[in-house]
Amino acid sequence: MGHFVIVGILVVVMAVLTYFGLDATGLATQMHPVAASAQAAPIDQLWHWEVMVISFLFALIVVPIGYSLTVFRQKKGEMLDGEHMEGNASLEIAWTVVPLIIVVIFAYFGAYSLGEVRRVDANAMIINVTGQQFSWTFEYPEYGFVTTELYLPVDRQVVLKMQSNDVIHSFWVPEFRVKQDVVPGRITEYRITPTLEGSYKVRCAELCGTSHAYMESPVVVVDSAAYDAWVVEQVKIAEESKTPEGQGKLLATKNGCIGCHSVDGAAMTGPTWFGLYGSEVKLADGSTVTADDAFIAQSILEPTVTVVEGYPPVMPPYVLTDEEISNLIAYIKTLK
């Protein structure tokens, strides 16, 4: 009986040590980054319970093995057999039934937690989100403007209606805890109530191609006064962008052009637009052309025909009207 008592005590000690060890690294009471949404609370709570059970089960298996290895070890040169012990049906039934009960309890908590996370507020604000290789755009239908930053008022539920222009992406803000894939051909929903003001990032979590790692956009949670001021400013910008250049800039954002083409000369997946108009461009086939209206229009409509030297032929063709193309060119002209 002595062995069981010692092992019992050691299991408890080990379980407590494991739990506090995880707590010391900051992993026990919450999943790591700061929790910034109402939905994070039930998720972190469930995680905390799971860490407790994990700590206990870890100790329950590791301690008897470690104890046996130390105490019941074959001594050097010894070649003895152990006790002939074939099994014990009641023990086996116990360690089948007890885990079964624990599992069902956890599944219940899991379902309950999911219910909390999906709790619907009828007054939630709707924002349309579009994912494309390799950028996010956010449309505020109430006000009719489009941005590349997601501004959210604190303590108000928002529903993101998400769609993809090309492949599968996944919308994840680690601080919000929730993740939802964005699938071409359907609209998926992401419901969140930000609770903590601050600057975060949405990070695409589903591999979507070459620059997947960089498919990140700012997510800013502000108080309602600051949010209203931001909306007024965005509406003003949208008014001002009724010019061809402004419309072009909007198109570049909406279609995700700026996910691959920088506007300040920085190196990205595609050639930069900075100083592009009127410049001499060397193509992959060795020829050199001047980046005029015709060249830019062709590069949008048939991108594989005019691949610039040193860049992969990965741009899909875009179907735009003549007016949209001339607006885009007007915008590119301003980038000098």
Binding site: P64, R73, G87, W95, L100
Partner: peptide, 25 residues
């Protein structure tokens, strides 16, 4: 979560096998 049950049976049975064995490594 149900997968945990048969997997648990394996772990507990292994521990019981090791328990009081004359172990060499």
């Amino acid at each position: 979560l149900l997968v945990a049950v048969p997997t648990g049976v394996k772990f507990f049975s292994w521990v019981a096998t090791i328990w009081k064995g004359r172990i060499s490594t």
